[in-house]
Design a protein around this nucleic acid. Structure first.
Lengths: 243, 243
DNA sequence: ATTTTTTCTGCGGGATCCCGCAATGTCCCG
DNA sequence: CGGGACATTGCGGGATCCCGCAGAAAAAAT
């Protein structure tokens, strides 16, 4: 068994390397890549089926890399090892994990033991391991309780990108009014909706812009999510230009 | 001489600790804090005048901590050691550094030697050391060439928070029209302004929201900056409520 | 199959935003 | 002192956004 590390911080990389060797004595070798691009290439060349990777890397972020790796070989086992449990990351990961795939999500703040346990669970026992904190986020996020549905999240991303109602309608195949309805739901759920009798905040906030701000503050959106969305938007715009 | 480390990643903390002991043999002791709050407390209690700190910590970010530390003792020497050279960070730092203070800004991706050199320069030689990459950002940012003036940045933050034109006018003591004028400048500088003859993008983008998106993508804004701005906004809103 | 619930859609109006035009004020330089 | 560069403000109009109302369509429940 070989393990591939994809992580841009050299300190964390060497720490991981040691942890892997200690936790997996049957491991035949450990390879390292310092960004998503190199990681994808190594994964492809070496057909490595065991990967530990960071999200949030400068060159190409972990979610993109994981997506293409899983697209090529869905049985690959990936353990995400991240600093953050931002809802944007959690949602991004659970969106791309193939059905029945084995993976894990451990925070860097977790203890040594927990990391090693996760390594064995995912790579040897074929068992998914999700950090409790991440797990909580996942439930809050995907369960509808105080969480956002896929469509609500979608429209949130669209306004965060700066699209108009009309453009969103075009893109999502909806009428303009429907887009506005969804925006309404979003405003309510984000707690941006101004209570009617309130004189204080009256007219202080531009709901659309405020929603984006709140989403960022709550880490529902983050820089990575925005970058991915922007990339998607760009290809859509290019496609539109041909018509 | 004692040195205080403020850094939330334990790996980086111990690496820093070693680097400091190696670079500064005359150093009598190294203390560690794992977030901004603890760091401030230690700095105050120990009157430590030599600090190395990370920006972007979970509890209380580095800029806030540095601001209060410098407010209490402006002669404190702080070496910022950060993963990123986001314009938002650079601007945030240069906004709070007291006149004549000695400080440094080194990226974590820098070599061992560069870090040690910076430690000696800032703490022993009383000389400012700014990483070249950060320096470039600083010039691009503060020099008006392709950069943003303070007022433009201010209004960018205001719309990112989701304020209406009227609210901004109130807050900044301007007329609504002036606010809109400044927004105009901002749109032009961010390259969001749609060229009139363009049929393609016509009406696709909500300029206000798009400006925020572009600013985030360009790292002119980031999560920390938004959090700080939100805190400021909250106190202003509270003050308004009394009138 | 019918009822219930949810979502989608059009209409319309008030608020806000985007921005051209023009007047005024301020600062600096010759 | 006069003139130029620039920021500020008002006015006004067209575009967009916010959202209540109500009917149509789709999905879910009974």
């Amino acid at each position: 068994m070989k393990v591939l590390i994809i992580e841009d911080d050299p300190l964390h990389r060497s720490y991981l390397n040691e942890a892997i060797r200690a936790a997996l004595p049957e491991c035949a070798g450990v390879l390292e890549a310092e960004n998503g691009n190199a990681g994808e290439r190594l994964a492809r060349d070496l057909k490595s089926a065991h990967i530990v990777m960071d999200l949030q890397m400068s060159q190409r972020n972990g979610i993109e890399a994981a997506r293409t790796i899983w697209k090529e070989r869905p049985e690959t086992r990936i353990l995400f090892w991240s600093n953050y449990s931002d809802e944007a990351y959690v949602r991004g990961v659970s969106r791309i994990v193939p059905g029945g795939a084995v993976y894990g999500y451990v925070l860097k703040s977790a203890s040594d033991d927990r990391l090693k346990l996760a390594l064995r669970s995912v790579f040897i026992e074929s068992q998914c391991v999700i950090d409790r904190e991440v797990r909580g986020m996942q439930q809050k996020s995907l369960g509808n309780v105080n969480g956002f549905t896929e469509t609500e999240y979608e429209i949130l991303v669209d306004i965060a990108l700066g699209l108009t109602d009309r453009a969103i309608a075009q893109r999502r195949n909806l009428s303009v009014r429907s887009v506005q309805n969804r925006l309404q739901q979003l405003y309510v759920k984000l707690g941006v909706h101004q209570p009617l009798g309130n004189q204080d905040d009256d007219g202080r906030f531009n709901l659309r812009a405020r929603a984006v701000a709140v989403a960022f503050l709550r880490k529902l959106l983050n820089h990575n999510a925005l970058e991915r969305a922007e990339a998607d938007l760009t290809v859509w715009l290019a496609r539109q230009a041909h018509d």
